[in-house]
Design a protein around this nucleic acid. Structure first.
Lengths: 214, 214
DNA sequence: GCTCGCTTGTGAACATGCGCACTAGCGTTC
DNA sequence: GAACGCTAGTGCGCATGTTCACAAGCGAGC
């Protein structure tokens, strides 16, 4: 590990939360150490990959023994930025937006809903799960003031790009898009998507071909 | 394209639904043909990738002109298995499961909810969005009878693996997992996951490191 | 304090995916 | 019917990601 110059590969980053969850389970079970093999089994990947992934974080294992569960959990939380809260802004106070705001596990996992936005003036002023709904025109000043780092887009597809633009303008660096459409963000802004229809269609492909090829 | 021996790469399969959506938009706008460049812009990818992806489906473009939108849309729908319905079974009739069952766009996109299952006997017999809730013990016979190809897991993490096992036993070949846990399925069964906490944690990582490195 | 079993950390081969840059070829214009 | 502009299709080198296999090294047991 070249000290500090370490750039963690994207594929690894995407797996870290899975390891984290496995480690949390092990802590619950009061298991003090874990081998890469056991962790691999829990995370549903191969052991070599676990070792390589963890090696990007530093040399936290002990040969012949394994990894200290609590210590690794702490290091990983730190690396993932989970040692402090990340206030989240949700754009779109419709079905999905409200459901997300009402979902407690959100706040509980360190992502408190700091603000809700909607373009419908009838919704502005309402309170959902203790959070007031503001107008989308106020995203920039409010999100800045509340130090929102992560924005969630829960609007219809047609409003998604506009929501993204406003979040970016507010200095939000990470966006999670639930709208079934492709949105563009400038370099340096992280973007991930959750798209139900897309997932089903991908499964449909494999299902169809399983049938054809059999 | 070597006729018929074509194995479409996973990465390509995952993009096909995005192209499909773009094509549907073009049809709505009554635009008859589209170039790889335009389609790439709409799908948020690079033009060479679009051409390579589409070439796996066959040689459906015309040099100097582009792709016939309606024809490509049809071919792609066929390839994705979207020319017929895929009955879906949802396991877990809690908040998420009910929301999914109530979400009309599901059926509308060719994935009708054929059955709902829950392990809570108090919920069995209830009707959600016109679909009766059955007990999880009845997954195997019922899912077979209803020719369910795709199963959706909307249970708590602790019940997810059991749900998956029962779906597999029922002959379901594709599973979409919403439970925040890793589940194992036999070879030949497709598995995709939707995990909110995971996505937020990944974003948190990049957010944290953007701050550190600046 | 030596040996042995066990597990990490990693070099290197292999696989997959990406994108440039070029060729093939269609349609239009003159 | 020749020439030209435009766009699909693709070969190839590069980047990323995965996996194997092995050396390094810790700790238990004697």
């Amino acid at each position: 590990m070249s000290d500090r110059a370490r750039h963690i590969p994207e594929a690894t980053v995407a797996r870290l939360p899975v390891y984290l969850r496995s480690l949390a389970e092990l802590v619950d079970e009061k298991i003090p150490t874990v081998s890469s093999e056991r962790l691999a089994e829990m995370a549903g990947v191969n052991a070599a990959k676990v070792r390589k992934d963890l090696s990007y974080l530093g040399s936290y294992g002990t040969r012949g023994v394994g990894y200290d569960v609590e210590y690794l959990l702490f290091q990983m939380s730190r690396e993932l930025g989970l040692t402090h809260d990340w206030p989240v802004a949700i754009v779109g106070a419709g079905n999905l937006g409200s459901a997300l705001a009402n979902y407690g596990g959100f706040t509980q996992r360190g992502f408190p809903v700091a603000a809700l936005f909607d373009s419908d003036k009838a919704k502005v002023g309402q309170t959902i799960h203790g959070v007031e709904v503001h107008h989308t025109d106020d995203i920039a000043p409010l999100a800045k003031e509340l130090k929102v780092g992560i924005g969630v887009i829960a609007t219809p597809a047609s409003a998604a790009q506009d929501a993204a633009d406003k979040l970016v303008q507010a200095g939000v660096g990470s966006i999670l898009n639930f709208a079934p459409t492709v949105i563009a963000v400038p370099d340096g802004v992280s973007l991930r998507k959750v798209d139900l229809a897309l997932e089903l269609q991908i499964l449909s492909f494999y299902q169809e071909h399983r049938d054809l090829d059999s």
